[in-house]
Amino acid sequence: MSVTITPPKAPTAFAKPGRPARVPDRHHRGIGRWIVLAVVTAGALVMLVPFAFMLLNAFKAPGQYSTDGPLSWPSEFYTQGLRTYWTRVDFPQKLWNSTLIAGSVAVLAVAVSLLNAYALGIGRVRGRLWIVGAFLLANMLPQESLVYPLYYFAKEAGLYNTRLVVIIIFTVIQSAFGTYLLASVLGTFPKSLLEAAALDGAGKWTILWRVVLPNVRPTLAVLLVFFFIWTWNEFLIPLVMLIDNQTQTIPVALASLQGDRLMDAPTTNAGALISLVPAIVFFLIFQRTLSRGITVGAEK
């Protein structure tokens, strides 16, 4: 870790301060840039070390782990840890639960955000600043301030330990952010488009569906990906609401096995490894959408 925490001034030593350079010259910058590259690369490698540890120990027999330690090279390709974890938590079921919950939330929350933002950003309803403020605030709330009443209401309504209640809750929580972001995006929507459509006799619903939606589709795609990942990674509310094998999500299943006697080091690592595969796959697929989206998020 110490490698990455360079105090702000350190790199100046390498950057040859005060040397006048007419044009950024790629070929004659001397050794300084290589030192900078080496330092940053070392930092990046430190970031990757835990992943390497995980890979190294996910397929190592427990016997070898206890005699040769965590850094030894696995002498055999041991898959029992992975299989134990797979069957014990019924991983396919967990994968489906997580996908169902995160997918439904992403779609529903985008829809709710768009409807809200249409009324706020384009409809400019009275008191919209207060409403947007309320959504922004909702986005900052600690879930602890909601969780007990939600738990209690869910039990009363017979929705406790269902995926549906988690979907509803996160649809609202994510759309609070989506509304806030989209309302400001739609606030700058070109008036001429709306007026042209209204002149053509289009109603509000038609304008939303045929004019606004196609124009903000890229932003909606970004929100969709964000909502999916955020919901996928959520922990507290799923932990409280989902208590059995049929409904739990991947993070909850993994955490609830912690401290279990069966979870030796290879099983823990194999479990963690298989649990992060979907997140990484998803990240790779949507990397472009995300890097675009991060700018959108930052400009809010």
Binding site: V112, L115, I122, G123, V125, A134, A138, S175, L208
Partner: peptide, 19 residues
């Protein structure tokens, strides 16, 4: 336009405001 805010407002009241 208030109609468009309705589903969001009801959900908001149930899941955030009320709790």
């Amino acid at each position: 336009y208030w109609l468009y805010l309705l589903p969001g407002a009801v959900l908001f009241a149930l899941v955030i405001g009320g709790p």
